[in-house]
Amino acid sequence: MLKKIKADFNLLAILLIPIGIAVNFVGFQVAQILRLPIFLDTIGTILIGVIAGPWVALVAALITNSITAIFNPVYFPYVVTSMAIGVGAGLLSKYGMLSNVYKTIVSGLVITAIAVVVSSPITVIFFGGATGNTSSAITATFLAMGQNIWGAVFSSAIITEIADKVVSVLLVYFVVKSISDRYLSKMKYGHLYMKKRNTKSKKRITHPNLFT
């Protein structure tokens, strides 16, 4: 098992991690600049899960949140959510759940579910249901309507996550489609997304040697 995990971390996979993490940050930044109502800050992690597998994505998530902690350590507990998303994306990819747009949307919903189930307890236990962004207002509304804290946090998490995660997974689906076969062929799950399946002819070379 451990050996198998280690094999996932070949040099190319290792070099993909910083890129994925940077994509998480840049995605968030661009979404802010464009004033989009969603975060789009897990695209890199999902991408890594999809092409390099769950374990590499787990490490990428861990480091992403550690680096975020440099700027704001308070939200570090959500590292568990990010890691779960990465692992989830890896497993979905493994079982062919990103092979077409419809399956990809289903994958987006599955990842939403993962994010909600893992982050809600963190929100309740560490922050008493608040998160410091707009979803707190939604949570407060549910609470005022008489829901209990768990119901309110769950409902508000679903509302804020669903668009973010479905869009993120779809984006990753289209990005992976445009990655070159040359690169994909060297990634763990890359063969699932190559345009040209292994159709290589087995013919030998026919050219005679001209000069020896």
Partner: peptide, 10 residues
Amino acid sequence: PIGDEWILKH
């Protein structure tokens, strides 16, 4: 690995 062509020959 990708591509049929022999890039170096004999």
